[in-house]
Design a protein around this nucleic acid. Structure first.
Length: 234
DNA sequence: AAGTTGGACAACCGCCACCTC
DNA sequence: TGAGGTGGCGGTTGTCCAACT
């Protein structure tokens, strides 16, 4: 006995989405929010698998998606993150606002892989592929690391130990509030600079980061004091 | 002009982890 | 505690289209 199929394949559409299907999905999610993907197609009047709806929304229809070409900065960040995380596309996507794991995965396979090959670097191991290129393309030596880091890091003189802080390269993968190196004013703390690092929280609605949108579930905008509290107390 | 090739990207598939009962 | 349901993830495939022969 195998697992039950996620949907009735005999009565679902496959392939490219039509404009009408997109519109149905968008309007349904706008009025009901994300979630319960299994029952969503039926409720929204779509002849699609729930998984397909989720994928279409996350990878293409979400309003906060950043369309268009990847910038040099994004590309370098992806390479560095891939070197650290491997094929953890969702984690990498989490560090690139507006980009999806699918988009990054595709970009990696079509652009970056080739570029690394040209450089003589194995895209999987991020190491030189042969002895000839090893000397030139050796990675992760302290000197090279420092030189490459300078590309995506900026000197702001505010951080301890050298006065450097990396731009959005927080690799803390624990489930917690994000940490920012530069102090940000917060209504929860009178003096952010004197607070312990763990207590410094930025002004970001975590409901939003979890996928809630505006009026759907989040009331942070109307009650600023509740930012973060919903996650912590629920 | 027609056929072929290859790049780009959307979409699907199967597996896994987590949650609920 | 284990079975089933569900969502999420990564790998792979399918399709479109432009460049090339």
């Amino acid at each position: 006995m195998g697992r039950s199929p996620c949907c009735d394949k005999a009565h679902t559409n496959k392939g490219a989405w039509t404009k009408e299907e997109d519109q149905r999905l968008i309007s349904y999610i706008h009025s009901h929010g994300e979630g319960c993907w299994r029952s969503l197609p039926k409720s929204a009047g779509l002849l699609r698998c729930g998984k397909s709806c989720r994928l279409r929304w996350i990878n293409y229809l979400r309003p906060d998606l950043k369309r268009g070409n990847f910038t040099e900065e994004e590309e370098e960040l992806i390479i560095r993150l891939h070197g650290l995380l491997g094929n953890k596309w969702s984690l990498i996507a989490g560090r690139l606002p507006g980009r999806t794991d699918n988009e990054i995965k595709n970009y990696w396979n079509t652009h970056i892989k080739r570029k690394l090959f040209v450089r003589g670097i194995d895209p999987q191991t991020h190491r030189a592929m042969n002895a000839e290129t090893a000397a030139a393309a050796a990675v992760f030596t302290p000197e090279r690391e420092a030189a490459e880091t300078s590309d995506i890091c900026q000197s702001d003189g505010s951080s301890a130990g050298g006065g450097r802080s990396c731009v959005d390269l927080n690799l803390d993968l624990t489930i917690s509030l994000p940490y920012y190196s530069s102090p940000q004013p917060s209504p929860h703390s009178d003096d952010a600079s004197t607070a312990a690092p763990a207590a410094r929280v930025p002004e970001i609605c975590f409901c939003y980061r979890l996928g809630f949108r505006g009026s759907e579930a989040c009331v942070c905008e109307s009650i600023p004091e509740q930012k973060f509290l919903r996650l912590a107390t629920s």
